[in-house]
Design a protein around this nucleic acid. Sequence first.
DNA 1: CAGCAACCTGACCGATCGGTCAGGTATGGT
DNA 2: ACCATACCTGACCGATCGGTCAGGTTGCTG
Lengths: 186, 186
Amino acid sequence: MSRSEDLRLIALAEFASAGYAATSLQRIADLVGASKASVLYHYDSKEQLLEAALAPALDDLSALIDATAASGLDLAHRAAFVERFVDYLLEHRQVVHLVINQGATLEDVPVMQSALVQMRRVADLFDLAAGSPVERLRYGIALGGAAYCLAAARQLDVVEEEPEILRAGLLAVISELLLPIADPAR
Amino acid sequence: MSRSEDLRLIALAEFASAGYAATSLQRIADLVGASKASVLYHYDSKEQLLEAALAPALDDLSALIDATAASGLDLAHRAAFVERFVDYLLEHRQVVHLVINQGATLEDVPVMQSALVQMRRVADLFDLAAGSPVERLRYGIALGGAAYCLAAARQLDVVEEEPEILRAGLLAVISELLLPIADPAR
DNA sequence: CAGCAACCTGACCGATCGGTCAGGTATGGT
DNA sequence: ACCATACCTGACCGATCGGTCAGGTTGCTG
């Protein structure tokens, strides 16, 4: 794995767990075993490093949304979407955690602005604007709760070592929360 | 309201929304309309300001846990506890959000260490250690989801202006998640 | 062998951080 | 009127930040 790939992955882990502001370039350099100037050789700035860290997950989310928006999210497709979305959360847990917890304070960073737009598009798939406050609560609890569980999997003693059990459990609870949300086509 | 009270409340809001590391003493001073040295006149350090900001919520949580631990959390008491816990989350949403999202990186700060211990005591009331991974997921989704919803109430368009509707909705969904967790007395 | 590109680093920059301190102001009590 | 206390602030400190740059190393190509 190349040095720039290493940097991107380690930066994401630190940005997600410690916070973007609390993660210095020096810290990332130390973790990677290089100098701060080397970090800035590969990425023009701390902000560009954040952009590189988020980009793959945002591309995947955009693809997921585009595929879903075409067919709509009526009841026939709801369960399938929830399953794909849970898989997305499992695969990109650090980015999701980062965006929903630090997004508001980083919204003047272009890539984070873009990420927040994508998250709103997911919410829009459920047509939450037309729904009740309880439906929006269900959605928020599902999203925020899943993100928290995946970020804090170790502290919650949720079996990271058995990803199929984690996936099945997460899918069951998230489905319970999201499937009852009213069919937007009604 | 006194200056030190002002400082404590504004510091909490900033620590919760922007992050402890990203919130400077200068920033808090600016928001309060005083000098940085004035902030440090009232609180000996940034860390002591954090301690003052968290203390009331931690006291309330400790009281809630103590009251519950006496009677245990069997099914007869489960619903009542969940209701009191939801009220606690509503009242101390900023502290809860701060502790569960930044707690891990601030665990060498004594007050945060104490906060994390309290949060584990809440989890212990449900005897999650003896439960299944799905039960721990339900608990984590409830806690993390509620914290996220309350912190992001505006973005989720959850009616902050009608706190009774918010409370009723939150209570309904959190109860749905937590009441099925197995009776620890069984 | 020379030249070039990619990669890397130590030293340095201005800005901001958390915190200290001497000195000023206002208020209340004697 | 004087003294004590609470409150406040500007200037300053050492440390660290994000970032720049000159110079070095390595490997590849003609």
